[in-house]
Design a protein around this nucleic acid. Structure first.
Length: 785
DNA sequence: CTGTCCTCACTTTTT
DNA sequence: GTGAGGACAG
């Protein structure tokens, strides 16, 4: 078959694409054509005659998988690229688990709980165990359980591990193990799995059933993993096991772009790869094809501040391009206005279109001010993330009906709809049902099915419950007789959900109706589309539609790719994407880097990698913005520019010239957090180190006690700021001196503290009162001794 | 049992 | 500023 398409690669890329046998690791710098190599590699396999059923490719999003499939079938027409096993870890292994579910005691139509379902279940359990949800915050409990699962620690192992128990006792949460156990039991009883279970149970399956492992080892003769730096231990082990037979394993990653450690991703997986496969061939893709020299250099100058990284030099032959613009605003709203204006200019002066432009931010909450400014300017935009479509209440309600119909044991779905729309089944009734279920070790559904004979409810309440049971059963009947759309529509109508929404004529109510209509027409579309691949020749029934809906995210919506709109998203969501012009907004201390990351070097380094990812999304124009004040929780919060701004090679920046009040850029003050903020993290966060349990040797660096001093570059005085404001050497500062601070004005040094590495002073200012300052940031000017 | 009003916690990032 | 959940009256 024709393999001329490989000519489109540079020599290293081509080697990486052609070296198809044996273990391969591709370290790919930002913009170095990583996806291209993966695509060509798979296309190459197909053109060599490898059957598409034998290839497994794990991507980070479903969207990435879809796009890659498309490109592959363009490169090698005629081959069944559609039959490739390609998707996220979660969706691929959900599929395998459904096929093998019986072996681990699950029905194949098990429900996948999303984060909301999991939290709600945890709340229920807390109430039953009479534990305080202020101490055992559901989100914290869930993340603890999630960490355990991602490190393959079962509830039983959790409860019998003395170190973990000791950690939990120390952090005054001794019941965590108990909650974990109850949670897992309830999931099982509901025939449900949470996100982490999809990986955990896959591991269980492959471990307990060697013949199943063998089957999939034989099937997947070629395995490829994208974004390998963001895999966790559980994922690592699945891949390792599956690849053990043929050893045709290719992982692609960039340690500099690892941004998911917070959910268990482990850079060690890259480093360990060499140990696992001594035969490994490594390819480094270092030439960047995406961005201008300026942008590449800026990104390099930032990432250099990280201690932990693989050696890699990203370079480019692209033009130098424009300087990176830095915009300062006085408020978050003004930041939005400035960005909107700049977008307007880009379109006017550089013939940019909306779709060439992205606005990136650290937290979803920041989108609000941006949206408002764009709307006022009449600039079309599309927001990704935030409140995902599938997370809206009305959507979840309808889907809960679907879920319950497919899997009546689904406890969260049942609780959600048993009294919505209101049908007189209230708290007390539900309480009785729950208690009975617990006593008899049954699911809620099993209890309500027998409510007529068990006599646990009064006759009026029992009748209402039985009516509900009858209704769900009749829906269930439709599963075999109707297609997905007809049944969905029938459910929406007969349940009374549509009527209930229809009664609400407020603008919000109307928008809810429209969302539900949109969901229904999505199902219609699903019914009308032909099956995409041979092993997908299943019926277009509702169960097929609903099964993996929890795994869908906003960016998986395949809506109007041609729409000419500015993209708004978090930096996390922007991973893997590129735009001609990028705005990175909210570059302020405590926001980016996040306040929560400041105390631990590893976490700060992750923030820095995130910044690196943000910068490298840009092809031609890059603009960095920050505001000096911002609304947080409805209150104004004053902010300092992010340290990341200082870390960029200053000669690459086009600094603000007006409105800048001298070099306010580098003044720094530690108003609210006082000295404590630079001390090492509290014990509670550090103790639980699940990696101890794992067979993988890890260097597991502890959070460091002393903080790495920030790079101190003299200011590139491009802003023409006042010459008088040269920082005095902090060493000269003594108690009693009169000093001037850029923002606080004149003051007197009261105390100097040299104890904790970072030299600090307490200064009593005439106007601003007493402040604690870190001298290396404060730039105090000495007036008289 | 239902609906409304009030309080409070909330912001990292996502499959 | 907002959304979820609790308290209370009908």
């Amino acid at each position: 078959m024709n393999r001329d398409f490989l000519d489109g690669l540079n020599p290293v890329q081509r080697q990486a694409a052609e070296c198809t046998e044996g273990p391969v690791m591709i370290i790919a710098g930002a913009g170095s054509g990583k996806t291209r190599v993966l695509t060509f590699r798979i296309a190459n396999l197909l053109s060599k005659g490898v059957d598409s059923f034998h290839i497994l490719a794990l991507t980070f999003t479903n969207k990435a998988a879809r796009e890659m499939k498309e490109r592959i079938s363009n490169l090698v027409p005629g081959t069944e690229a559609r039959n490739l096993w390609m998707g996220t870890f979660h969706s691929v292994f959900a599929r395998i688990l459904r096929a093998e579910a019986g072996l681990i005691g699950y029905p194949s139509n098990f429900t996948i709980y999303d984060t909301d379902d999991s939290k709600s279940l945890i709340k229920t359990i807390l109430a039953e165990l009479q534990l305080d949800d202020k101490i055992y915050k559901p989100s914290l409990v869930l993340s603890r359980i999630s960490t355990a699962k991602n490190n393959l620690i079962s509830a039983r192992e959790y409860c019998s591990n003395p170190e973990i128990l000791e950690d939990d006792r120390k952090s005054a949460k001794p019941k965590l193990g108990l909650i974990y156990e109850a949670y897992d039991k309830r999931l099982f009883k509901a025939s449900a799995m949470d996100f982490d279970d999809l990986l955990f149970k896959t591991n269980v399956l492959l471990k307990q059933y060697p013949e199943v492992l063998y089957k999939y080892q034989q099937k997947f003769r070629y395995i490829l993993v994208d974004e390998y730096q963001d895999t966790n231990f559980s994922q690592y082990l699945i891949v390792k096991k599956l690849a053990a037979m043929h050893q045709n394993i290719c992982v692609v990653g960039d340690d500099a772009q690892s941004i998911y450690a917070f959910r268990g991703a482990n850079i060690q997986n890259i480093l360990n790869f060499e140990k696992d496969y001594p035969e490994l061939k490594t390819f480094k893709l270092e030439q960047n094809y995406r961005s201008t020299k300026t942008i590449v250099q800026a990104a390099n100058s930032v990432i250099r501040h990280n201690k932990e990284q693989l050696k890699k030099v990203v370079w480019t032959e692209n033009t130098t391009g424009n300087l990176i613009t830095v915009l300062k605003a006085l408020s978050d709203n003004e930041e939005g206005v400035k960005v909107a204006n700049a977008i307007f200019d880009l379109r006017m002066q550089h013939q940019m279109q909306n779709k060439d432009i992205a606005i990136l931010y650290r937290t979803n909450a920041q989108s609000r001010a941006m949206e408002e400014a764009l709307r006022k300017r009449g600039i079309d935009y599309r927001i990704y993330g935030g409140l995902s479509f599938y997370k809206r209440k009305e959507i979840k309600d309808l889907i809960a009906y679907f879920r319950l119909v497919l899997n009546p044991n689904d406890e969260e779905a049942l609780k959600r709809v048993i009294n919505y729309p209101a049908r007189g089944i209230g708290k007390t009734t539900l309480e009785k049902i729950t208690v009975t279920a617990d006593e008899q070790n049954k699911s809620l559904w099993e209890v309500i099915e027998q409510v007529g004979v068990s006599g646990i409810l009064g006759s009026a309440a029992a009748q209402k419950v039985l009516d509900f049971v009858t209704m769900i059963r009749s829906f269930r009947h439709g599963l075999a007789t109707s297609n997905a759309f007809d049944l969905a529509m029938h459910i929406a109508k007969s349940s009374g959900l549509l009527k209930d929404l229809d009664a609400d004529k407020t603008p919000e109510g109307i928008s809810r109706q429209e969302n539900v209509k949109q969901l229904l027409s999505g199902i219609k579309e699903f019914v009308d589309t032909l099956p995409e691949s041979e092993d997908e020749v299943k019926e277009r029934t509702l169960d097929v539609y609903v099964q993996d809906i929890a795994l869908l995210t906003d960016s998986d919506d395949k809506d109007d790719p041609n729409a000419n709109k500015v993209t708004l998203m978090t930096i996390h969501a922007a991973k893997g994407l590129e735009f001609k012009a990028v705005f990175v907004t909210g570059l302020e201390e405590n926001l980016f880097p996040s306040q929560l990351s400041l105390n631990v070097r590893e976490e700060l380094e992750e923030e820095r990698r995130l910044f690196y990812v943000a910068l490298t999304r840009a092809e031609e124009f890059l603009t960095l913005t920050y505001a000096t004040s911002r609304y947080k929780w409805g209150q104004i919060d004053y902010c300092e520019p992010s340290r990341f701004l200082q870390e960029i090679d200053q000669s690459l920046l086009d600094m603000p010239t007006e409105n800048n009040g001298g070099s306010g850029f580098f003044s720094f003050e530690n108003e609210r957090s006082s000295f404590g903020s630079f001390s090492p993290r509290k014990i509670s966060g550090e103790g639980f180190n699940p990696m101890r349990k794992t067979p993988i040797p890890t260097a597991s660096p502890k959070p460091q006690g002393s903080f790495k001093p920030l790079a101190k570059k003299p200011i590139a005085d491009s802003a023409g700021s006042s010459n008088e404001f040269i920082p005095d050497n902090p060493q000269k500062l003594k108690v009693g001196m009169r000093v001037e601070h850029e923002r606080f004005g004149m003051g007197k040094v009261m105390v100097i503290d040299t104890q904790s590495g970072d030299k600090k002073a307490i200064v009593l200012f005439e106007k601003a009162g007493q402040k604690q300052l870190l001298l290396k940031f404060a730039r105090l000017k000495i007036f008289e001794s």
